[in-house]
Design a protein around this nucleic acid. Structure first.
Lengths: 210, 210, 210, 210
DNA sequence: GCGTAACCGAGACGGTACGTCACGTCTTACG
DNA sequence: CGTAAGACGTGACGTACCGTCTCGGTTACGC
């Protein structure tokens, strides 16, 4: 029998210490230089205890992010779609990606998924997709409310919003969007989503700064 | 790559064998499972020879990609901006990212840049930025020709084009854009760039498939 | 050996396999061509396990000799000093130095001490000095018993006995003392140690063979 | 054809620089830590040049010692056998073994002979045996002159003289004989060699210091 | 006195082994 | 039974030297 560990008896103290240690070490040395051995040492925990509950360091960090990051990137619903989008995306940029404890952890985690399909699945299931679903739900609601065109392709819109953000995160790591750039990005996408009557002649978002 | 040692009598045979071995191993086992030892063994070369000319396996793979990938993603100039964009981006998707020898190599390389700033710089300098510069130049030319709005923000446009592509590459790895999706993406961005007189009432790209 | 790590749960099986492998490899290829990697491979043990408990291959071989060699060079006490000396020295020559498993190991070890002071100290403490102490004790007892001159310089005597033996071992490696030569050597030194009344007119040991 | 190097064209400058560098490096780091690469670098010489003329670093050091050491250990002949012996042996101890440039070189060289039979042969042929032959010749002359017993076993005598010296050199490296100890050793051996008429009742050399 | 063949410096090359690191598994003793 | 401690086999790391091998350049012999 593979005899899975009985989660009833799991030590909450150890769990917390491990998650805490993982984030701290990510902040200090960067995800790539964090090792299971170091997490165990920092958390005063046996390596066995880590491997009993998680399959890899990536899974630990994912759990850690899951607990830490949610408040910063929750999707609000104030009725003002543009404000809600900006709030959530700014939370993502400012509350997660530039926070030392979580930013390097997140990019490292995404990096790890390139050679760990299980981790990729977990990351999507636990972190990425739920946010996307929230965002899609918010856009769908706006569509129902008549704030955006009923024919708009919401998935394309989501890619146009989040693609550039992650693109910069992963390929220009230090150089994320400023609040102004973020605003321009959102303006552009939203203007294209606008219902026909309210459509602007052309998207102002692609005007240059002047 | 910053080859400090004066490459006065560098062995071209070894160099080629190393680059070839690196790409083959990426194709077979995935970038993350490639080791310098394996490259050396496959290329029948001493590890020292690899370390003499490259600082890390990432640098080797970068050089390998640089040589292999350029034809597929060169930026054409047929006069038809939309066709040129689609050709280049489809080359990127189809000729690089889904090619076994280069696709896994590229994503793994990007992953590695998350904890190797030198590699990140090299990747940008040698691979990413030159393509972006070509694309920007093509757009600028189109602007000069009056095909796109003189006030258009070309950098934003580039992010809107390439962001979603890399976003999918890195976060939904198996699931890249189809040709149709790519076309829609390009249509959307180009329509927003169109000069004022020719502006469509609203971007057709955000219509759903029907 | 100064085993810093607390040897609480050290694997006896590994320890034995390592020591055994070390001696076998010395016998097969000679100490100088033995490598830690080869010992590890032969003993089916990780290199790390060797380095955990010993600082160098020399230390391993020293431990191995210590366990293997002791019976052959124990100092007997039959009451007959000359016989005891000859027995012990012949054991050293025949039971250690010409045994394939130990002979090449010992000379190689001594060689290594020339550039490893820690090893030199260990070799003296664990192997050389204890034998010298036993021999000195045996001579001291003989002095007490009146078998040798009470004024005799025992340390000089020890050097005269063992010096030539090691001298040949290290400088004429194949060509150790025969039993007859050993007997002559012992006779010479003992005759010089004889108490005054029993002194021979001159040492017969320096007569040539005839 | 193996085309041996033509010694006529050999660069004396390189030869000297190599030998000089070898001894310096022995003095600085100890024979065991000297490498051919370091010798080449120090002597501003190509490795190829070293390997062209010597088969190994041991051979270089042997040549170096051969040139440097001879004056210190030449065997004098003043007519006074005891004085001659003491002079030569003290030269060996003081002029060679405790000299930084030569002492560590010599012991390291002897160490190396334990796993290099060619080097062992060269060392004996070039350095060890010639001295032994000189010593034996001096003793033979003394025998002819009637200063020592015509039946004396000169080879045993040589072993009794030099064995203890090398024994200490190799096994108690820091702790060589003092002049007094050396004198005692010589006295002991010579007294045993004395012709019958002059024989002492017993060897005074084995009396303890008092 | 002038080619030309050898030596020379420089250092790249294929190798072997080094000693270290982290992996993921395991064993032991405690609570 | 979960845990802390940590030894274990595995395998890759990046480095150090080995001894061999081109390279051009320089030197000195022999025609």
């Amino acid at each position: 029998m593979p005899q899975e560990p009985n989660p009833q008896r799991r030590s909450e103290k150890s769990r917390t210490a491990i998650i805490e240690a993982a984030l701290e070490l990510c902040a200090e040395h960067g995800y790539g230089h964090v090792t299971v051995e170091a997490i165990a040492a920092r958390a005063k925990v046996s390596k066995k205890t880590i491997y009993r509950w998680w399959p890899s360091k990536g899974a630990v960090v994912l759990d850690a992010l899951d607990e830490t990051v949610n408040p910063a990137i929750a999707f609000p619903d104030t009725g003002d779609l543009r404000a809600d989008l900006e709030a959530q995306m700014w939370g993502l940029l400012h509350g997660v990606m530039t926070e030392p404890r979580t930013g390097r952890a997140l990019t490292g985690l995404i990096a790890d998924t390139q050679h760990d399909p299980d981790l990729a699945r977990s990351l999507n299931d636990d972190l990425i997709r739920p946010r996307a679903d929230e965002a899609r739900a918010r856009l769908t609601k706006a569509k129902t409310d008549g704030q955006i065109d009923p024919d708009a392709d919401l998935d394309l819109a989501l890619e146009l919003l989040y693609g550039p953000v992650y693109y910069r995160l992963l390929l220009h790591q230090g150089d994320l969007h400023t609040r102004a750039e973020l605003g321009k990005l959102i303006d552009h996408v939203l203007s294209a989503l606008a219902p026909e009557g309210k459509a602007l002649a052309r998207s102002p978002a692609l005007d240059q700064d002047h």
